[in-house]
């Protein structure tokens, strides 16, 4: 009976700590169907885990919102490419066969 209950619990119930351990995989969409169902069953019945998941997701959203690259167009201006090429041309090693000229 005890074994049956342990197995039943393993299949149907996750602890908050186990749910926490699956957060990264859940947010990344990597959980298999069975574990995802267990995860969501727990979340639906546990306000603490539901709130923690909301904060975890909000953290990711806030990091994306604060992305320094948001202040720059997706393609930086050609000026940066020109600047870089000009810098490189100033710093390339001179060809060794010109050393004597």
């Amino acid at each position: 009976m005890a074994n049956f209950l342990t197995e039943w619990r393993r299949r149907w119930m996750l602890t908050c700590q186990e749910v926490n351990g699956f957060l990264e995989a859940y947010v990344d969409g990597r959980l298999d169907t069975t574990t995802k169902a267990q995860f969501e069953r727990h979340i639906n019945g546990c306000e603490t885990c539901r709130t923690y998941l909301q904060q975890y997701r909000a953290t990711i959203d806030l990091v994306k919102e604060a992305d320094p690259a948001n202040d720059h167009p997706p393609e930086p201006s050609d000026a940066l490419v020109d600047e870089t090429l000009s810098f490189l041309r100033d710093h390339y090693e001179p060809p060794t066969n010109n050393a004597s000229s």
Binding site: T48, Y52, Q55
Partner: peptide, 14 residues
């Protein structure tokens, strides 16, 4: 932190 598999603290929605 966890104790017996449960969070020891509580959380407020953000």
């Amino acid at each position: 932190d966890f104790r017996f598999g449960r969070y020891t603290g509580s959380f407020e929605p953000w």
